[in-house]
């Protein structure tokens, strides 16, 4: 079953058109990557799904058209978005950030259980639970951003460059935790990543964007075999 489908999606910042027909689909429990150079429109594609930019085309989620909804309505439908730059609420504590993540939920007991799960998944956060988020390291903030998104118990997670600005070993650890999260929770994921090596540890398939439209798509194995992908994104 397809959970999310983008069909010829366009997007604008004011009068400037940035997406020029992006199509992709994410199956239930699947993980799909979006690759592409700087400025290709990866972040904008995720913003289009969340309703944070003006869009055209068709965006179908769980069988209904969600194009034109506001970000908070999209969140209500079970889509969590870890934005580029993490979106951490700096002056709030780690615990408060996680509580914001669970804002829409009423099941207090399950929320408490999920909080424990997050702290087990990201032990670094456990020691810092009462410190303000701005005092965390970059890697810890990224973990917090992912944990906060998970606290909403989404069906689909949009993840924008979780490796941005992190040391390679930290980035690897973050992706390892996300992979475990995927296996244990079955949350579907749409993952933007510049570092294709990292992305391929997680996704089943991917699309490649160039100046606002997809130019390639395929399974991870197919893409890894292609020369142009190797040259452009896998370092030779």
């Amino acid at each position: 079953m397809t959970l999310l489908e983008l069909d010829n999606v366009t997007a604008w910042y004011g009068p400037v058109q940035v997406l020029d027909g992006v199509s992709l689909s994410v199956p239930d429990n699947g993980a799909v990557g979006i690759l592409g150079a700087n400025g290709a429109g990866k972040t904008t594609t995720l913003r289009a799904i969340s309703g944070a930019v003006r869009t055209g085309g068709r965006i179908t989620y769980d069988g209904r058209d969600i194009r034109g909804l506001h970000p908070e309505q999209v969140a209500k439908l079970g889509i969590a978005h870890v934005p580029e730059g993490r979106g951490t609420l700096g002056q709030l504590t780690v615990r408060e950030n996680l509580r914001v993540g669970a804002y829409l939920r009423k099941d207090r007991k399950a929320v408490a259980e999920d909080l424990d799960y997050c702290l087990e998944l990201f032990p670094n956060l456990k020691d810092r639970i009462s410190s303000s988020a701005s005092a965390l390291s970059g890697g810890e903030q990224q973990m917090l951003a992912v944990a906060r998104a998970f606290m909403a118990r989404p069906r689909l997670l949009l993840l924008d460059e979780a490796s941005l600005g992190l040391a390679p070993s930290t980035a690897k650890a973050v992706y390892e935790a996300i992979r475990r999260l995927r296996l244990e929770s079955g949350i579907a994921m749409l993952i933007v990543e510049q570092n294709a090596n990292l992305a391929f540890t997680l996704v089943d398939s991917a699309i490649v964007l160039e100046t606002g439209r997809n130019v390639l798509s395929g399974s991870s194995a197919e893409l890894k075999g292609m020369d142009e992908i190797r040259r452009a994104y896998l370092g030779g």
Partner: peptide, 23 residues
């Protein structure tokens, strides 16, 4: 919870909206 939501929106409205807060 209302107070937490007010603070979150003040800090970063677009990020707060991604968590479903009615900004």
């Amino acid at each position: 919870k209302l107070g937490l939501a007010l603070r979150a929106v003040a800090i970063n409205p677009s990020s707060a909206a991604y968590s479903g807060l009615p900004v």
